Simulated assay, not measured.
Amino acid sequence: MDQLIELYRKLLLRTDLSFQRSLGSVIRWDHRMIGIMGARGVGKTTLVLQYIKQQYQGKENKALYVSLDHLWFASHSVLDLADDFSKSGGELLVLDEVHKYPNWSQELKNIFDFYPDLKVIFTGSSLLEILNSRGDLSRRALVYQMAGLSFREFLRLETGKEFSQLTLEAILENHTQEALSILAEIKPLEYFPSYLRLGYYPFCREFGDLIDQQVRAVVNLILEVELPQLRKFDIAYVSKMKQLLGIIADSVPFIPNVSKLSEKIGINRTTLLTYFHYLAESKLTSNLFSDTQGISLLQKPEKLYLENTNLAYALGRNVNEGNLRETFFLNQLSQAHQVTLPKKGDFWVDQRWLFEVGGKNKSLSGPIESGYFMASDGIEVGNQNKIPLWLFGFLY
């Protein structure tokens, strides 16, 4: 345990507080058990270390951060750690990468039930099933989903300027004034291409020109480690899935022909549809359906997008501009809204609003009417039903 404490202290010492994610102000940190789920690389570890550094300053011994992929857990249990830490006066136990530990849900349940004075925060892959876990943590833990940086957060990281989060209703009803207030501070279009290229993952500054290499490393870890571990994904098909992701990146956007893809990749239709579902669960893709009611594992998505635009640049060879715009819109909207494929237009949001996405010269294909909007790239300020695409990056 001394080795774990030493590593925790070193990590805490290196934790920077200068930039913090907006999710930190949403989480109810006083709850006894908190889960933070998200794709690899979105900043879960940094978030919890920042919380410890701020809230346990001067009493760092009352908190302990451990990663469950550490070799120490090959011969020790999480329950034993919790017992020793609680007896030594510990108050907060942070368990990172819980999906790397075989019996995580049962032992977390036991900690919650038998150590009422110990608060637990755990983080894990977006593939983790809290509701269906053996320990049934859904009644004990408050679980939050963590996404990558929004365009709003990226602007704060780049400029140091703080901008308010906007609701979708505020954007639709008052987008001109909202855009003008932001333009008084910065020129969003100066930063928007950089965000699409490298701004979704918080490690963008750390890796600089090597960002594509790091994003590909994230993809490899998901395909080669997390999916085989958590979804029994056949590692023999990893190269084919990488090829598929590259095709999606360069498409306009990608409309899957399951029969042809199945034949080309060399796996049966049922397995391919299952893998579509797994790719979306792991936050590598976004699957767009015409209706999200009663979606089954084997339902074919109408369109396939990469989960974020940084993936497109890292995996594609000739990234399509129209695809990038739609990928950005879908990514930012889907964090808090239901997005489906409409009969006309590009996106149907919360079954209330219809959107088309395009460049500055594109107009709505139908008449301007209530609830029908154009999200336009390349404009600073919109007019009537025409809204700047970048403004939808202020939703979280």
Rank of each mutant, 00 (worst) to 15 (best):
D2E: 14
Y8H: 09
Y8M: 04
R9F: 12
K10P: 00
K10L: 12
L13G: 01
Q20E: 12
S25N: 13
I34R: 00
I36T: 04
G38L: 06
G38Y: 02
V42H: 02
V42Y: 03
K44M: 10
K44P: 08
T46L: 12
Q57M: 10
E60G: 02
Y65G: 05
Y65E: 05
V66H: 05
S67G: 13
L71G: 07
F73I: 11
H76A: 13
H76T: 10
D80R: 12
L81D: 01
D83W: 10
F85W: 05
F85Y: 06
V94Y: 03
Y101Q: 11
F112Y: 15
D113N: 09
P116R: 06
P116Q: 09
D117E: 14
L118A: 10
L118T: 10
F122P: 00
S125F: 07
S126F: 04
L127R: 00
N132Y: 13
R140C: 10
T159Y: 09
T159R: 13
G160R: 08
Q165S: 14
L166K: 11
L166R: 09
L168Y: 07
E173S: 15
I182G: 08
E185K: 13
Y191H: 14
S194F: 13
G199L: 05
R205V: 03
F207M: 14
Q214G: 01
A217F: 07
V218G: 00
L221C: 00
E226S: 13
L230H: 04
K232P: 00
D234S: 14
G246V: 04
I247K: 14
I247H: 10
I248Y: 07
P253C: 09
E263S: 15
N268H: 13
N268D: 15
T271G: 01
Y275K: 03
F276T: 08
A280K: 09
L284T: 04
L288Y: 02
T292N: 15
Q293E: 12
G294L: 07
S296M: 05
L304M: 15
Y305N: 01
Y305G: 02
L306T: 06
A312V: 01
R317A: 01
V319R: 04
E321C: 00
E321M: 11
T327H: 04
A336K: 12
A336R: 12
Q338I: 13
F355W: 06
G359M: 08
N361G: 12
S363N: 15
G366A: 11
S370Y: 01
L391Q: 09
